[in-house]
Design a protein around this nucleic acid. Structure first.
Lengths: 185, 185
DNA sequence: ATCCTCATGTAACACGTTACATGATTAC
DNA sequence: GTAATCATGTAACGTGTTACATGAGGAT
């Protein structure tokens, strides 16, 4: 927790709502296109957050009837919500990074792994990172020069750097590791 | 899940036990020095995993009485456990990477953030990554040339690359973002 | 004397994931 | 006309985190 109270996910939802009123479904879509690469949120979790935020008085929900589609509930950030958001933004504290790599767990124990499997894993990881890097680079390139977008772009560029690092890592250690595995056994 | 059954944490525990019998407490310490930077496991979770693995017959636990210290339960990997481990290592599938950055969430919404806070955050993130990078580099350097260690070293080098990328990112976008925030408002 | 760390764990809870539900519209 | 997708959500579950417990030894 950063400062005092709510988990980061709550502020993420609140922040997205500060860009305009939305239903949970719409919010899930928006989150998927904007923050998902560094802070994924499942839609079921979004509904939970919206409920919590409404109880706290940080958002106001309004039920909207629709003819051909299911009725929806549209949420709008309240003034208390804006205050909570700007308090959060006022502090430089942030929730510490969570990183877990099932890939590295396997690499760590790979001295017991068939050579072919290891090679498949390494090339797979390299390729995935390469693809993802290109994708995020494209995202960054397509953003406008609007001031607001500079922040979005910087988060995309973060992902670009990370995935570039992974590609380079795979190229560096790949040959050494498979060679290692050939010696052993 | 990678293949069929257990979560990655179970295999991580099993894999560490394949290096030798340990108590839960010892295992937690070992995990903290080896895999924590890409797969952290809390000790309370380790006890849970050990219980599960014992029920599955993948490890055998033996209670050991100690004079001055609390009694402990020492676990040893069973042959069924070794089989489960090698089956897991035989498949190139791995649990997908989980990455969550509370830092980037704040950066994403930083157009509403006081300039000073943004600057503090960026330099803090840069510094943390720099420190962590050096730490992991030292870890990699101190590993021997034993074949086994090559895999451990590669996971450390992964962290080195990642943190190097973060440092470079901060240097790239830092000035642009703070400049952006100076224009706005 | 008191406080902190070591060495062992147990218990409670919350976040986040996966699975389930439902009706209309579009695709093949 | 059957299957996939859209548009809305709810419910159940499990991993992982935080808090609690306990007694001995070392530090100040």
């Amino acid at each position: 927790m950063a400062g005092h109270g709510l988990p980061t996910t709550s502020y993420a939802v609140l922040g997205l709502l500060s860009r305009g009123p939305m239903s949970g479904y719409e919010l899930a879509g928006f989150a998927g296109e904007s923050i998902a690469h560094f802070w994924p949120i499942r839609k079921s979790q979004i509904y939970g957050e919206l409920g919590r935020l409404e109880e706290l008085g940080f958002v106001d929900g309004t039920s909207v009837h629709q003819e051909k589609l299911p009725d929806k509930r549209v949420y709008r950030i309240s003034s208390a919500g804006k205050k909570a958001m700007s308090d959060w933004l006022g502090s430089p504290d942030y929730e510490s990074t969570r990183f877990r790599s099932g890939f590295l767990v396997k690499v760590f124990f790979a001295d017991q792994m068939p050579l072919e499997t290891l090679e498949r894993m390494l090339s797979d990881a390299r390729e995935k990172a390469e693809t993802y890097r290109a994708e995020l680079q494209a995202t960054a390139d397509h953003l406008s020069e609007e001031p607001q977008e500079a922040f979005t772009r910087s988060t995309a560029l973060f992902g670009v750097r990370i995935n570039q690092a992974i590609v380079e890592w795979a190229e560096e250690v790949g040959p050494a590791l498979t060679k290692e595995r050939k010696k052993k056994r």
